[in-house]
Computed example of a mutant assay.
Amino acid sequence: MGLLSPNFFINTIRIGTVEGASCVNFGNNAPSGFESYKKLNQGFGSISGDNNSIEGLRSLLSDSAIMDMLINSKENEIPGWTQDLIKEKLKKEKS
């Protein structure tokens, strides 16, 4: 094999997680147009460890799906009737 050989040899590759707009590429690649949107609604959180006790817990989560629709609408125009509904809903929430 020559000094500038296009070949390479890897014994082991260990990949834990590939998610969202991530990718694993080998060779000649030109990935483009990757987008990712992730939403996590968690009103409480998480508890880890030993001997935990949770008593009298109260939690409230308010999730407005309108914001999700606006964030995900980059490629497609939102129809006029939907825009009117959103405006009406936002007015009601403000008052």
Rank of each mutant, 00 (worst) to 15 (best):
G20N: 13
A65D: 14
I47N: 06
S46K: 08
G49N: 06
F44M: 05
K89D: 05
I13P: 02
K74P: 00
F44I: 10
P79N: 07
L85M: 15
P6K: 03
F8M: 14
P6D: 07
I54H: 05
V24I: 13
S53N: 11
S48Q: 09
K94Y: 07
L70G: 01
D50R: 07
T82N: 10
I66Q: 03
E19A: 13
C23A: 12
G45F: 01
F44T: 03
L60H: 06
E75V: 08
Y37Q: 05
D50M: 06
S73C: 04
D68S: 12
K39C: 07
N72S: 09
K94M: 13
I10M: 12
R14S: 12
S46R: 07
S46H: 06
S53G: 08
G49R: 08
N7W: 10
I10T: 11
K94Q: 14
N28S: 10
A30T: 04
A30E: 05
S36C: 02
L60T: 05
G2D: 06
G45Y: 01
E75A: 12
S73D: 07
S62E: 08
S95L: 15
S48L: 06
K94W: 04
G27S: 00
K92M: 15
I66P: 03
P6R: 04
S46L: 04
N29Q: 05
S36H: 05
F26E: 00
D84N: 14
K38P: 00
S62G: 07
A65P: 12
T17N: 10
K89M: 04
D50T: 08
N51Q: 15
S22R: 12
I54A: 12
I66G: 02
G56Q: 11
S32I: 04
L70E: 13
E55V: 13
S48H: 09
A21T: 08
E77F: 02
S95K: 15
V24A: 07
K89A: 15
N51I: 12
S22I: 07
K91P: 00
L90A: 07
K91V: 09
Q42A: 09
T17R: 08
F34R: 07
I86H: 10
N51Y: 15
F34G: 09
N41C: 07
I10V: 15
A21C: 09
G2Q: 03
L90G: 00
I13F: 11
F8K: 12
G45I: 00
Q42W: 02
E55R: 13
K91L: 13
V18W: 01
R14Q: 12
S53I: 13
L70V: 01
K92R: 15
A65C: 08
Y37T: 09
E55I: 13
T12V: 13
F26M: 12
T12L: 14
I78H: 05
K87I: 07
K91I: 11
F9Q: 03
N28F: 06
K94S: 14
I47S: 08
G33Y: 01
L85H: 13
D84H: 11
S62Q: 11
D63G: 03
L60S: 08
S32P: 00
S59P: 00
S36M: 01
W81G: 02
T17I: 07
Q42S: 10
W81I: 09
N7P: 01
T12E: 06
L70Q: 05
P31Y: 01
I15T: 11
P79W: 05
G27N: 01
L61S: 13
G45S: 01
D50P: 01
K39D: 12
M67E: 12
N51V: 14
